[in-house]
Amino acid sequence: MSVVFEKTKGLTDKEFHYCPGCTHGIIHRLVGEVLEEMDLLDDAIGVAPVGCAVLAYDYFNCDMHEAAHGRAPAVATGVKRVLPEKTVFAYQGDGDLASIGTAEIVHAAHRGEMITVIFVNNAIYGMTGGQMAPTTMIGQKTTTSPFGRNAEQTGSPIRIAEMLATIDGAGFIERVSVHNPVHIRKTKKAIRTAFECQQNRKGFSMVEVLSTCPTNWGMSPIASLGWLAENMIPYYPLGNFRNPDKEA
């Protein structure tokens, strides 16, 4: 008899506050599993964002720090520079990272900070009630774009992974998704590689995870996974955009 799957020690026993079917739970678990497998639970320091994941410090079983809205990479920079032997990660959503925190993420990458960022992109502001985010798809209805997002008025959705991949300070940049078991496994692998990039001091690392928001998208959790695959992946292509080992 062998255990195929049990709850990781990388997470506390506290139950998630997320809505039913929200993929934040999957991504939390993958980060926790990677921290446990790399034996980093005593050495990792996470930085929680503002947004739905604001309570992430209750869930990860390692030291955690809260940051002001969008400023997680700045706080992580400070923690890492003071404690360079620790593994430091920021966990951010798209309203946090791609909107109010764009300056912080771009410059953290630009400076080549040895931190890892988990970027959860669900194309909407979840916590505040489903407003349009910079990552919202063209035509997508939100509470602040009730007739669908219009490119003439608000521009096109921002592709963060591609943008950061042009920066020399970035070591590892990859976009993944959690819409089915195959991609969930790939996501875990990418998160692990990002942490290894940090440990090997190969530069800034970020994993962009395409995620769902069933509540604010107005769909069932199952339909949301389908909507992600059909609408988000064609615009936000999955894959690696920067890898320190391939360039060497």
């Binding site: 008899m1 195929v4 049990e6 997470l11 929200c22 993929t23 934040h24 999957i26 678990r29």
Partner: peptide
């Protein structure tokens, strides 16, 4: 267990 967002499921072989 892999797809469960709420850590409900564990599996043994």
């Amino acid at each position: 267990a892999l797809v469960c967002p709420d850590l409900v499921i564990s599996v043994e072989r």
